[in-house]
Each structure stands twice: as structure tokens, then as C-alpha cells.
């Protein structure tokens, strides 16, 4: 069986790749294109470490087939900073020490960015429920929530 030839857009750039039917978008991003910012923590949609945007929707890349992204637009953590300029969320995660080991951080950032684009002024409870699909085992979430709330303030101000 021939591989699927997929033409797609990732982080604004055109990409072409070949993949097997069973390969997930996460397999393609990591093993194929070596965009390793998206992490595999569970491969079952339970940890959120592979959070990416697909046509503007937050999804787990482990639950999307590579072949499905034909003609679609994918955004990953690798495009979050604007050149040397970190996104306010990235900056606030650093300032608030919102990461310890950092493996979950890309997923949290992608998910938090999707939240603030939809809801620029979320309550703490809204942030917690929105981010419930992103597991962090190090921080107890406290500093992550604070960083997101603080970034929201900054982003509303600018």
C-alpha cells in the first residue's frame, strides 16, 4: 500500500510529506519533520502535551491522522514566538516560574494561547477548566494559572 502524499501548511510554511495511514499528526511532526516541540506523553489524548492548532481549533496531535491534514493549517509551539520576541504567555511562564521540568510547557502554552484568543479575560476557574486537558505533574498548576492570568492582563492592555 502506497504511502499518503500530504500537502499542508505548518506554521505558515508549505510542507509536503509522505505518511502511512496509521501514522498520527504527532508522529509526522516529530519523527518525520522533527518538529519536536510537541511532546508525546500518552498518545491517547489524556495529557495534552502534543496540543497543536488545526484550522484554528485546539486539538491533540496524537488524535489526528497525518493523512487528515491534507490542505489544512497546523500551528505548533515552534511558531509561537515572533522571531526573537517571545509571546506574552511564554514570557509570563518564565517570569512566574510556571515550569519545572518543562515537558508539558509547549502543550500548556498552545492551549493557553487558544483560550486567550477566545476569551481575553477568563476567570481563574475558566482557566483551570480550559487547561484541564493538559497534565502537569511538577507544579501543582498554581504558577501556570497565575502566568496565564497575568499574560491575559498584559495582552488586554496592549
Amino acid at each position: 500500500m502506497a504511502k499518503h502524499h500530504v500537502t499542508t501548511t505548518i506554521n505558515g510554511d508549505p510542507y509536503e510529506f509522505l505518511c502511512e495511514a496509521e501514522e498520527t499528526l504527532l508522529d509526522v511532526l516529530r519523527d518525520g519533520l522533527q518538529l519536536t516541540g510537541s511532546k508525546e506523553g500518552c498518545a491517547s489524548g489524556d495529557c495534552g502535551a502534543c496540543s497543536v492548532m488545526l484550522d484554528g481549533r485546539l486539538v491533540c496531535a496524537c488524535l489526528v491522522l497525518g493523512a487528515e491534514v491534507e490542505g489544512r493549517e497546523v500551528e505548533t509551539i515552534e511558531s509561537m514566538a515572533d522571531g526573537e520576541q517571545l509571546h506574552p504567555l511564554q514570557q509570563k511562564f518564565l517570569e512566574h516560574a510556571a515550569l519545572q521540568c518543562g515537558i508539558c510547557t509547549p502543550g500548556f502554552l498552545v492551549a493557553a494561547k487558544a483560550l486567550l484568543e477566545k476569551n481575553p479575560d477568563p476567570t481563574e476557574t475558566e482557566v483551570r477548566y480550559w487547561l484541564a486537558g493538559n497534565l502537569c505533574r511538577c507544579t501543582g498548576y498554581d504558577k501556570i494559572i497565575r502566568a496565564v492570568m497575568d499574560a491575559a492582563v498584559d495582552m488586554r492592555g496592549s
Binding site: G45, G48, S51, L54, R57, L58, V59, C60, L63, V64, A111, A114, L115, W130, A132, G133, N134
Partner: peptide
């Protein structure tokens, strides 16, 4: 049904 990520699909 699942997280926001799951909701997207």
C-alpha cells in the same frame, strides 16, 4: 466529552 482538545474533534 473530554478536554478542550478533545472537544475540538
Amino acid at each position: 466529552i473530554g478536554s478542550v482538545q478533545i472537544q475540538g474533534r
